[in-house]
Design a protein around this nucleic acid. Structure first.
Lengths: 109, 109
DNA sequence: CTGCATGTTGACCCAAAAGTGCAAGTAGCT
DNA sequence: AGCTACTTGCACTTTTGGGTCAACATGCAG
């Protein structure tokens, strides 16, 4: 799932038009359109500030959107800072091990 | 330990002057000074590109410096992208659980 | 005490990123 | 045909990041 797709999905789910969202966020419609279509002038995603406001407006999970936009949410960043060794280790693990770890965490939630 | 402190420490350990480092990196001395003192006009830390070069020049561990500068090293970022759910979950765990997890990972490395 | 080496700071500058806004177009509906 | 929602190119403005420069402190060797 791409960032823009998800944004559109959220917007449509709430029966909102681009115009409405644009107005509420006080940005231009064309910008919203470009965001949803991933056609920003440069860079693939809007700024974190924008995403923050957008998540608010669409009652969406900000971290989910940040992750889709390939940005690291503050919640995760602060964990990394507190525990760098753990995360460096995770970074070195292969995908299968990570998947396995995810499973084990989900089970004993 | 703060980013700037660590940079100074590394520089002094190698008997280098700010001027030397500045020259080698082809930036101005004043910039190096500000970096070490955390007095950048804006933002608290230099760019990732700068940190990369700096780590190189000071023969330091780039990821260590990145983490001190509250940035997420590419190695970790790419893992997050591949596995966002895992990392969201980790972000929600408390410190004790994370410590425990780290221990378990170290043991069955 | 002077003069050089080193480091610090504020004011300023420039380029790139982020977003604006129009105009002209597409597509579906009634 | 005409309305509504959306798309897209383009030129423009604003903001922010990353840096320089010049002037100032400070320590210390001769």
């Amino acid at each position: 799932m791409q960032f823009g797709e998800r944004v559109r999905e959220l917007r449509v789910q709430q029966g909102l038009t681009q115009q409405t969202v644009a107005d509420r966020m006080s940005v231009s419609v064309s910008y919203i359109s470009k965001v949803e279509n991933g056609k920003l002038h440069f860079g693939d995603y809007p700024s974190e500030k924008f995403i923050h406001k957008l998540a608010d407006e669409l009652k969406a999970d900000e971290d989910e959107l940040l992750l889709l936009a390939d940005k690291v949410p503050a919640s995760i960043r602060s964990r990394i800072r507190q525990n760098p060794e753990l995360f460096r280790r995770l970074a070195q693990m292969d995908r299968r091990s990570l998947k396995a770890l995810e499973k084990s965490l989900v089970s004993n939630k």
